[in-house]
Amino acid sequence: MSHEAGATARAVVDLALGRPPTLGRGRLVCVDGPAGSGKTTLARRVAGLLPDARLLHVDDLLEGWRGLPGLAGSIDALLRPLARDETGRWRRWDWYADGWGDWQEVTPGGLLVLDGVGSGSPAYADLTTVLVWVEAPDDVRLERWRVRDGEAMLPHQERWLRDEAAQHDGDRTRERADLLVDADGRLLSRPGG
């Protein structure tokens, strides 16, 4: 882990722990941004800093390639019980079977890190402790996507890019973010600065 990326992950955790709990007795960090920007790398670093942190990739809650518009409802249904200090439930999307899979549970308390496009929805902004926006130049993002997911996923790319842009524009995710981070994990801005 580079020093700067490690410092950014620590800044996210410090900001979250410095704020009152928003998810019942727990806290919620949402790491959002366009595909291939570096969200998962940062989210793993953040979750790795606390022994009670849990990381949830919102790709697992998407109903396939066209599931982005319904994602906020699925996440909200998971988070509302946690806000009452009750166990939250969510259903995993099986990308290979192209259908819903098994149910998962999340116990209340600690730090929950949501990672993925659409994770920073305003639908549950009242439960979000820290919203992080990660960005990267388009050429970097598209190359990362190609390397990570392979050529077989490229037919989905054009539609996904339109859907994610519409989601982020409609939700004003970048503008609402507490922290802005670049593709290398460097903190671009912090609250009040």
Rank of each mutant, 00 (worst) to 15 (best):
L56K: 00
G185K: 08
L15D: 07
R176E: 06
V130Y: 03
W103D: 12
T40V: 05
D14Q: 13
S74N: 11
G24D: 03
D76N: 07
R144I: 12
V46H: 02
R25E: 09
D32V: 06
G64Q: 07
L49T: 02
L131C: 03
L82W: 00
D14N: 14
A11L: 10
G170M: 14
L56P: 01
G67N: 05
L61T: 04
L179V: 11
D139W: 15
R162K: 15
D60C: 06
E175C: 04
R25D: 12
D163K: 05
R190S: 15
A35I: 09
S74P: 03
L161F: 13
R80A: 14
L187R: 08
R80W: 02
V117D: 01
R19P: 04
S37T: 08
R27W: 00
L82S: 00
V46I: 08
Y124N: 05
G26T: 00
T41A: 15
G36E: 04
D52R: 03
R25G: 13
E86W: 05
W133R: 06
L180I: 09
T129W: 00
D76R: 14
H57M: 03
W65D: 08
D94W: 03
P137E: 15
H168W: 06
G48L: 05
T128H: 03
H3I: 13
R44Y: 05
G67C: 10
V130A: 03
A165G: 10
T128F: 02
M153A: 14
R144L: 11
W103V: 15
A16V: 02
I75E: 04
T107W: 01
A53Q: 01
G38Y: 10
R159H: 14
K39E: 07
A125G: 14
G64E: 09
G73C: 07
L154E: 15
S119D: 04
G73P: 05
S189K: 11
W93I: 10
R148S: 11
R80V: 14
W103Y: 11
T8S: 08
D178I: 03
V140N: 03
S74W: 06
A183W: 09
C30T: 15
D60R: 07
Y124F: 13
A11D: 09
G24F: 02
V31I: 13
I75H: 02
A123F: 06
L42N: 05
D182K: 06
D169G: 14
G64I: 07
D138V: 15
R54H: 04
Q104A: 12
D138T: 14
A9Y: 10
R159F: 13
A136S: 13
L154F: 04
W103E: 15
S121R: 10
L17V: 08
A166K: 07
W145K: 08
L15E: 09
L112I: 04
H57Y: 06
P34M: 11
D98V: 09
R146P: 06
R141G: 04
T173A: 09
D184Y: 09
L71G: 10
T128S: 05
D115G: 01
T40Q: 03
R89F: 08
T173R: 06
L111E: 02
Q104N: 12
D138M: 11
D182Y: 04
D52Y: 04
A43L: 04
W65I: 11
D59V: 05
A35C: 12
G110L: 01
V147Y: 03
V46D: 02
D163V: 10
